[in-house]
Every structure is written in structure tokens, then in C-alpha cells.
Nucleic acid binder design. Structure first.
Length: 267
DNA sequence: AATGGGACCTGCGCGC
DNA sequence: TGCGCGCAGGTCCCAT
């Protein structure tokens, strides 16, 4: 699923390819992805605007247009963006750029969303969002866990707690830190929190370097698969052997989400 | 405060 | 081969 590393990959590629281009035309194949205003109004507001910048907060991608207008993109589960010459298989909205290229907003399951706002920092999803895991200091990170009785894995995925971590990297970070995903957060030792802090940073950076994980249908801006999914140690590997102890990896449900881990290594 | 479930949505993989 | 069912998951919303 698109989590922080996948959204960052798209952000970096968009910066190189679409800044200062103009959006000449918009084709809406499926109106359901446009939220908060009609397709007609969406088109009239975006048409002719120049792309000034590409921002990211958590899993939210923000495209800065001229005249204080921001195009907010949330990929949710199965959304992705592809820059190409032709329409893509799951294109829901297509932006025709001034250089002739098409920026396709694709989304197999139609749960992603596009919005227009004049001030992205006032979006409720942004206002309630926790700190960025790659920016927070170790001291502040450890503070976050005080009085949190929730199970550690659903907590890491809570966007109000920490921004940008989803089901893949929560599982991977906990495996690397050797922490059982069911542990109550406030019962982790300081040394375990230290290690978790390091492993979260490590796994997110590694995933960014590899252009994300292509589980499900995620593709980067060029339509290429990420390179990270083969490097995942536990996600989606239930029944396989743990790469460290060679025990069988187990799958449980936590907070309604599938969770794979090693009962022997993760304590 | 924390947890659980449903809704949104479609394609895929499985069992028969 | 083909059908139908259930699962996958990010976020929001409601109920307990």
C-alpha cells in the first residue's frame, strides 16, 4: 500500500518531471474520486494552472498550483500516479500537461481521493496528524509512548500518533526491533524504544532508496514496480520461515489488520 | 480512552 | 472451465 516511502518516491519523481508545467485539460473518468466539489467545478478551477511545487505530509501528497490553490491527493489503498503518453488501465482522472504528457491518477479500488483547497494545513487530516517519523528526535519519539496502553502495532499505524506508517512498515520495523506486535506500548523498555526508533528510520529510508514496495498494484511515476517488496522480512510471509531463527512466521489480526511476525524472535 | 465493527470499493485467488 | 465467495487495506464513523 502506498505508505510514506511510496508517496515520497512519487513526490521526488513529480518534482523532477512536472514542476512549471501547465495543466491544459482534465478528463474525469470516475467522479467518485473527486471529493468536496463537483467534477465540473474541479475542472474549471484546475484548468490552465501552472504546477508550482510538490509537497508531502504523512501519506498525503500535495500539489501546489498557482494562485494559492492546492490539489490534495490521497492514494489510500490502491491509488498511484503514472506519467505517460497514453491512458492507463485504472485511470480515474487524467491531467493533460502542457508538454503533451498525461498525469494519470489511477486507482483500482476507487477509494483514493482528490480535493482542492486554498490552505492544506487546515485540512482535518493534516491538523490531527502526528509527527513525521524521519524528522522527530529520539527524545520526542520516546515521549510519545507515555501513557499509551494500546497495542504497539496498531499504535504505529495510527496517523494521529505518527504520520506515514502503514501495515507493511509497522510489521517490518517491529520485526527488526524484535518486539511482539501485541505488546502494550507503555510497557516497552527504554532500550526497546531506542531500537524501535532506529529501525523505523532504517526501514523507511531503505524503502525510499528502493522506490517503495509494490504489493498490490502500486507503481511509481514511471509505471515501474518498487524494489522493496522482495526485501520485506515478514509482511505477507506467513507460513514461511523466519530469516533469523528459521521458525515458522505466524499471522494474526490486530486492530482488524493482518499482522505477520515471528513468535520466537519478537518478544 | 480504547477497541471493534462496518462502510467505502474492486480484482484476485481460492475452493468446489 | 467457471462460478461465487471472501479477502486485501487506509480512513472515517459509529457503538460499546
Amino acid at each position: 500500500m502506498p505508505e510514506l516511502p511510496e508517496v515520497t518516491t512519487i513526490q521526488t519523481q513529480l518534482r523532477k518531471k512536472i514542476i512549471n508545467k501547465k495543466i491544459k485539460e482534465i478528463l474525469i473518468e470516475d467522479e467518485r474520486v473527486i471529493k468536496g466539489l463537483s467534477a465540473k467545478k474541479f475542472i474549471s478551477q484546475v484548468k490552465g494552472k501552472k504546477i508550482k511545487g510538490i509537497l508531502r505530509r504523512g501519506k498525503v501528497l500535495i500539489i501546489e498550483l498557482e494562485k494559492k490553490l492546492f490539489l490534495i491527493i490521497h492514494l489510500r489503498i490502491s491509488g498511484w500516479l503514472i506519467l505517460s503518453k497514453d491512458k492507463e488501465r485504472f485511470s480515474r482522472v487524467i491531467f493533460k500537461l502542457s508538454d503533451g504528457q498525461l498525469l494519470n491518477f489511477c486507482d483500482q479500488r476507487v477509494l483514493g481521493e482528490l480535493k482542492l483547497v486554498s490552505d492544506w494545513q487546515h485540512l482535518s487530516i493534516v491538523k490531527t496528524m502526528g509527527p513525521e517519523p524521519l524528522d522527530i528526535s529520539k527524545k520526542d519519539f520516546i515521549k510519545l509512548f507515555e501513557n499509551k496502553k494500546t497495542k504497539i502495532k496498531p499504535l504505529l499505524m495510527d496517523q494521529k500518533f505518527l504520520a506515514g506508517i502503514g501495515n507493511i512498515y509497522a510489521q517490518e520495523a517491529l520485526f527488526l526491533a524484535k518486539i511482539d506486535p501485541r505488546r502494550p506500548a507503555n510497557n516497552l523498555k527504554k532500550s526497546e524504544l531506542n531500537l524501535l526508533y532506529e529501525k523505523i528510520k532504517y526501514i523507511l529510508k531503505k524503502a525510499i532508496k528502493n522506490k517503495g514496495s509494490s504489493v498490490d498494484s502500486y507503481r511509481d511515476l514511471e509505471g515501474d514496480k518498487g524494489g522493496m517488496e522482495t526485501k520485506l522480512k515478514v509482511y505477507g510471509r506467513e507460513g514461511e520461515l523466519c530469516c533469523i531463527c528459521e521458525g515458522k512466521l505466524e499471522k494474526i489480526t490486530l486492530g482488524g489488520r493482518g499482522t505477520c511476525f515471528c513468535t520466537h524472535c519478537q518478544k
